[in-house]
């Protein structure tokens, strides 16, 4: 779609395009992973509202900072006995 052409009917476009659109820019808190504590239960992966938990072969590998909003759900949902994710203030980093 280009500016001077007709737009796609009713705004219907191909799916999955949100992945290509960076929305992490206004994050104030950043999740920090303590890899030594993490047991890869992936509750954070289930609960993240932005699909920003990155995994590989069933292991948590990090966070997608282009989409993470710093909401802290991952840190809150991480089991009490584990607490492998903490939230740091971006400007302090």
């Amino acid at each position: 779609m280009t500016k001077n052409n007709t737009m796609p009917h009713g705004g219907t476009i191909k799916s999955g395009t949100a992945h290509d659109y960076s929305t992490g820019g206004w994050r104030k808190l950043r999740p920090i992973l303590d890899r030594d504590k993490c047991i890869d239960c992936l509750i954070c992966w289930v609960m993240c509202p932005d699909s920003a938990i990155l995994t590989e072969d069933g292991k948590l590998t990090g966070f997608d900072m282009e989409h993470c909003k710093g909401c802290g759900v991952c840190a809150a949902e991480c089991p009490d006995k584990i607490k492998a994710i903490s939230m740091a203030v971006e400007e302090d980093l």
């Binding site: 500016k3 009917h9 009713g10 799916s15 395009t17």
Partner: peptide, 25 residues
């Protein structure tokens, strides 16, 4: 014309259009 139930051709409906495109819509 388009349907959300066509799983072979997945589409997004009701997406954003910011100042670059909203007016053309």
């Amino acid at each position: 014309k388009d349907t959300l139930l066509d799983v072979d051709n997945p589409v997004t409906m009701g997406a954003m259009a910011l100042p670059e495109f909203y007016m053309e819509f």
